[in-house]
Design a binder for these strands. Structure first.
Lengths: 234, 234
DNA sequence: CGAACCCTTGATACGCTTCAACAAGAGTGG
DNA sequence: CCACTCTTGTTGAAGCGTATCAAGGGTTCG
């Protein structure tokens, strides 16, 4: 039973265009677009625990995670970090703060060695004028974030912990009998579900003894998909 | 002690450009822009209880509330409506669903007689090409929605009911000794705070007997701002 | 007047957290 | 190799916060 990968060495600093493609969505970036993006973007390789940005800090760039994992939340006083959401690269990390111009709304900490990309807002504005596609990409990215957050608040407001866990399991793999490999610590999963690690442990055991899932370390097998769906949406 | 205004007659169907201005944000819309918006927009006058849109319904328009109040949430089986968020016009109602193209994510019900505006997505795309300002308006609107939702989820994940109530009070009026006039029913406020009306009643009484506020029907006077801030952020 | 709301208050129940103790690796150094 | 520590997850007992259920009072309206 090994914990999820947690490399302590930073990866080679490759700024792969394929990761950029994944962040910006379809259609694929043209050569022209890639060429225009290069001068306005800057990438950083960050080790575990590093702060990508801090709450309140001026947001002059759009921020994306090319690879690795970055957590969003609020940093407490003494080195502790209250995790709220995990972003697995390649994906947007903070697409909204820069537009609002009131600084980042959350703290961001590297959970697994990450390659982070900063896109200058001014540069993006120029691209928006030149490339109609780019408008769609950004608007779609923001819109998807809104939908995702809307779903999260809905879950928090109207589902109990068990329902949220079932929802999470199904979202990770809606395939009967499939083995869901956890990419994060149980502690971090618990944080995202807004429960304590203790409660998560009890809930997993509960679902297990009800025959809905089978837990082996960091791998969870879904045994009864219908029952899980019933739980999640009931 | 009178309840918040709840007109049963619909207002005159005025499509005021000033309301449109408020929705789309600064800078003010130019004559050209207003002229271009007219053919792609359509307004509806809706009575209390009417559905503005339903969950899953195809979203081909951006939706804004010009005046009145519309609630977002999920409609249950038998006429009941689980309220999650209230939108007071003039403001955007659903700026995200149309871009994603997967239908509306929530149900929307009129809480107080409202004038609702639908903006055709295709029409908007044309405007985005013609007016650089319009890009900023939409991106800013989406970005602000993201920030607002992020704040909401943060509150739900890490604050108890009392803290959320204090936060709400301060957000409504950060002025010492000011009288906050509730625009909604207490039942609806409770729904937005993700608590039951009973709990809200108890919390208000609790804050009142602690000398932090003074409650008179639908008007709340903030007596001790510092203590409230301490509560909200602690 | 009665009916239909809305808010309040009290008693009770349940879900989840908190605190404490413990087991099972993983890394470290003798 | 073993002893040591650090981290992670598990389990149990107790307590807090909020929901639920039931009852009653205040308005408004037919």
């Amino acid at each position: 039973m090994t914990a999820p990968a947690r490399l302590t060495q930073s990866r080679p600093p490759a700024i792969s265009p394929s990761a950029l493609d994944s962040v910006l969505g379809s259609p694929r970036l043209s050569e022209l677009e890639l060429h225009a993006l290069a001068p306005i973007s800057q990438s950083r390789q960050l080790p575990v625990g590093a702060a990508v940005f801090a709450r309140g800090q001026a947001a002059t760039h759009l921020v994306a995670v090319l690879s690795g994992v970055v957590g969003l939340g609020s940093a407490g006083a003494d080195q502790q970090f209250q995790l709220e959401r995990c972003v697995h690269g390649p994906a947007w990390l903070d697409l909204s703060s820069a537009w609002v111009g009131a600084g980042h709304a959350q703290d961001a900490r590297v959970m697994q060695p990450a390659s982070v990309l900063d896109l200058s807002l001014d540069g993006i504005r120029v691209l928006l004028a030149r490339f109609p596609d780019m408008r769609e990409r950004l608007l779609l990215g923001l819109a998807q974030t809104v939908q995702s957050l809307t779903g999260t608040t809905h879950d928090l407001m109207s589902k109990d912990a068990q329902k949220r866990l079932a929802t999470w399991l199904l979202q990770r793999s809606p395939v009967q009998g499939d083995n869901v490999a956890m990419k994060e610590r149980k502690r971090e999963l618990a944080a995202q579900l807004a429960i304590t690690p203790e409660t998560l442990s009890r809930l997993l055991r509960q679902l297990m003894s009800a025959g809905l899932i089978e837990v082996k370390g960091y791998s969870i097998k879904l045994l009864n998909l219908a029952a899980l769906q019933n739980l999640a949406s009931g």
